[in-house]
């Protein structure tokens, strides 16, 4: 791997950004962007001072990706086209963030995660290591949709859990380690470690072990068919 950075002429690198080596920065990427809030926002105006934005070695940022101030991207992180990572967020080594993924502020994402196209990771979310988040998964952090003044609380994803496409995870819910959530589920309550949940509202339908055994059986059958 080349240790030289490849930076498009159309990319914008703001002040207070530290770049590692072997980084690829494609067209129209913005790094170190300071957040702006609407003039009528209910929240306090954005702070003026931020920690540096730190981009690890061999990170790839595809076209149009936006990395805000005070973000830390670990080595070998990949950001797909138009991915947006808000301020005060960390992304662990080897994590892949797909196209059009939005990661809101004050979020921690662990190592070797796969967050697929169009997923929305809300503010104050904690994502463990080796977590799979499918396309268009939506996480939320405001239980009462701004109608009642309560603290916001992002969901927590345990190490190794997997959430299928288009699922919705409501504020403060904890998805246990190695738990599996089927596509299209709406999760309103904590999911214990090693369980398989599905539906709306989601409920337990099996275990991680049953899911893996079943997945292996059906994939072996498909492979057998292909090999014939």
């Amino acid at each position: 791997m080349s240790e030289q950075n490849t930076i498009s002429r159309t990319a914008t690198i703001k002040e207070n950004v530290k770049l590692g080596k072997g980084i690829i920065i494609q067209d129209f990427v913005v790094i170190g962007k300071r957040p702006e809030r609407a003039k009528i926002s209910l929240f306090a105006q954005a702070p003026r001072e931020f920690k540096p934005t730190v981009i690890g070695d061999y990170v790839t940022m595809c076209a149009g990706a936006i990395v805000y101030a005070a973000v830390e991207l670990g080595n070998n992180v990949f950001l797909g086209d138009y991915a947006s990572i808000r301020e005060n967020t960390t992304v662990g080594e080897g994590t892949i963030i797909g196209r059009n993924v939005t990661v809101e502020c004050n979020t921690r994402i662990g190592k070797e995660c796969k967050i697929q196209t169009g997923a929305h990771i809300t503010a104050d979310c904690i994502v463990g290591d080796k977590v799979f988040i499918g396309p268009e998964v939506c996480t939320t952090n405001d239980s009462y949709m701004a109608l009642v003044d309560v603290p916001m609380e992002g969901p927590v994803f345990g190490d190794g859990c997997a959430v299928g496409a288009n699922s919705t995870i409501v504020p403060g819910v904890r998805i246990g380690k190695n738990a599996v959530i089927a596509s299209g589920s709406v999760v309103f309550q904590n999911v214990p470690d090693e369980e398989f949940w599905m539906g709306n509202p989601a409920r337990k339908e099996g275990t991680y072990k049953q899911f893996i055994g079943t997945a292996k059986m059906f994939s072996a059958m498909k492979k057998g068919k292909k090999d014939q």
């Binding site: 089927a182 398989f196 599905m198 339908e205 099996g206 275990t207 072990k209 049953q210 899911f211 893996i212 055994g213 079943t214 292996k216 059986m217 059906f218 072996a220």
Partner: peptide
């Protein structure tokens, strides 16, 4: 999905746990 439901019902009714290879 029904395979998993079947496995869960067998475990519940016959009071034992399969291992992953058996489910496969």
């Amino acid at each position: 999905v029904t395979h998993m439901q079947l496995v869960a019902r067998f475990e519940e009714s016959f009071k034992f746990q399969f291992d992953v290879e058996e489910i496969t």
